[in-house]
Design a protein around this nucleic acid. Structure first.
Lengths: 236, 236
DNA sequence: ATATACAACTCGTATATACATGTTAGTTAT
DNA sequence: ATAACTAACATGTATATACGAGTTGTATAT
């Protein structure tokens, strides 16, 4: 029965599911710690451990003397590092990619700095048009250290998510992204791809992905269609 | 000695201070849980409680079998609801405002919905040009329910931060903002203010501020100069 | 009817303990 | 010298318990 998953994780999973099913609703109270103890036949500290995790990610909040409640927002949702493919699928669109370029280069010095490698080290340069239902939405340019991902060019990134590939074949999970955003006019090829004309307004984003050890694993510089794409952010 | 502050909070405060003083440095290990037990003459569960809080806000991270370390980033910093004035000051610029409009209106229906008020209720409409060292950076349009902030028009918002005013005179603190961002071309008056010409690229943001009870307190719709302003985001 | 007191229930803080699991460095056997 | 083992130490999970503090509804006294 206990499939080797810690009890407290089973409880968080149960509570999350129950919220998703709509059984525990926004603003409503959930069973008390004592009731959950009985339900899972465990100690109160273990139940609190589970609830703490959900309070910390914003799913629940507590009021002393009254109980524990479902938050009005699930903050977590908006703040995950999703990747384009996943994001589009959650919105109900069919994501696809067209590879513009996938080659080994010497990095420019600012990229080498951000990735904490030497200018003499090689990087993979992957440039893709990201599409939703075949409509061009963004151009993503990603730079990855060759040392860290040897043989990456063997994999088809036309069909598959880059992040899935890194996870599956290199056991690399993105833990954190530090991203900056401004707005500029795209011209030339970029504008032609996204707008089918020679100028268009885009959001320009640039920044670094880090793994759990805070080693930089990718530098991305991307353009998102100014009106077809919206960034959705919750700030606490 | 124990000034009625819970022990675990004393420990988190101590660790934070020690990091700020530079004694525990980025990426370096901090004393083990056992050592902190001895140092504060308390139990391991209490020390873990303290460390958990710092792990959850991103100040520390743990590696099983090795120890607890100071994170390379302090995530919290980037995710605060700062307000324009505060943000500009931290960047070393002198913030100022020019009020374009400050009046009582009937809200449009989408704004009434977002603020959870009736279309027949009044709202304050505050429109300001936000400047850094007298250079126009953004146009902020804010809508606030009159019922909640009676007499708001008495206060000078030319000199003072709106958020400071709400805090000081109405005891209202912003707990959370849900914001959306895209990129568009500003034209007409807006472009003239921000670019001194008839067109310019801007980031368009719109969204709602909530208080700790998740009551909407303001709806904002703003334009930020596309290149003079950059959004800086850390996603975990 | 109203006010007070109390009991029951909630989450908050704290301790002492146990064993599991992962990491590291030193020791021992080859 | 190298490999395998082991002890020491780190965090991870879990229990049983105790009392503090805030909230709510009920019962009692006025």
């Amino acid at each position: 029965m206990p499939e080797n998953v810690p009890i407290y994780q089973q409880i968080t999973a149960y509570i999350k599911e129950t919220i998703e099913k709509g059984i525990y609703q926004k603003g409503n109270i959930i069973p008390s710690e004592q009731e959950l103890c009985n339900q899972f036949d465990t100690s109160r500290m273990t139940v609190r451990r589970a609830i703490n995790d959900l309070v910390n990610d914003g799913t629940l909040y507590r009021i002393q003397g009254r109980g524990t409640f479902v938050s009005h927002f699930v903050f977590r949702k908006y703040l995950e590092v999703l990747g384009f493919s996943y994001h589009m699928r959650t919105l109900g669109f069919q994501p696809s990619s067209k590879i513009l370029s996938f080659e080994i280069q010497k990095p420019e010095k600012n990229i080498a700095e951000e990735l904490k490698i030497l200018p003499s080290d090689n990087v993979f340069y992957l440039s893709r048009v990201r599409m939703a239902d075949l409509e061009p939405i963004a151009i993503e340019n990603v730079f990855l250290p060759e040392k860290r991902f040897p043989g990456l060019d063997k994999y088809s990134l036309e069909e598959n998510s880059l992040y899935d590939t890194l996870r599956t074949y290199y056991k690399t999970e993105i833990f954190l992204r530090h991203e900056k955003i401004n707005a500029i006019v795209a011209e030339g090829t970029d504008a032609n791809i996204l707008f089918s004309k020679n100028k268009g307004v885009v959001m320009h984003t640039w920044g670094v992905d880090f793994d759990t050890n805070m080693n930089p694993i990718a530098y991305a510089d991307s353009l998102y269609h100014g009106t077809k794409y919206t960034f959705d952010i919750v700030i606490k």
